[in-house]
Simulated assay, not measured.
Amino acid sequence: MKELIETIVKPLVAHPESVRIEKDETDRLITFRLFVHKNDMGKVIGKQGRVAKAIRTVAFAGVPAHQQKRTVIEIVDQ
């Protein structure tokens, strides 16, 4: 999933070298923290969060249906 998120986000931003993803996993939750350059936050979030929602939709389509863990993507500036 990390590679999928990177593949989606890197072409959108002006500073692709700053894109970094960290994964935290507990028994019920998988959290992906997407770090982007401060100036790229608007591009990744989009108007009214539409780009961020689209990123989440595409990324979650790759999650197996039988997986019992909730998956979250957080967008953080560096």
Rank of each mutant, 00 (worst) to 15 (best):
L29P: 03
P64S: 07
V51S: 13
K53L: 07
A14F: 04
Q78H: 03
E74W: 02
K2M: 15
T7A: 15
L12S: 04
R70A: 09
N39P: 01
Q48F: 08
I75W: 00
V76R: 12
G62S: 01
H66W: 14
K23Y: 04
I5E: 08
V36S: 01
K53E: 12
T31S: 03
V9Q: 06
V44L: 02
A54I: 12
A14L: 06
F60D: 06
K23I: 13
R20F: 10
P64D: 06
I21P: 08
A59R: 01
D77E: 14
F35H: 13
L34C: 12
Q48A: 15
I55D: 04
D40L: 03
I73K: 12
V63S: 04
K43T: 03
E17T: 11
F60W: 14
T71F: 15
H66N: 14
V9I: 10
R70F: 08
R28Y: 09
K10F: 00
L34M: 14
V63N: 00
I5V: 15
I73L: 14
Q67E: 13
V72F: 12
E6K: 09
E74M: 09
T26H: 01
L4K: 10
K2P: 00
K23T: 11
E74C: 09
Q67P: 02
V51K: 09
T31Q: 04
M41Q: 05
V44C: 02
H66Y: 11
V44K: 05
V44Q: 02
P64L: 07
S18Q: 11
Q78C: 06
Q68K: 15
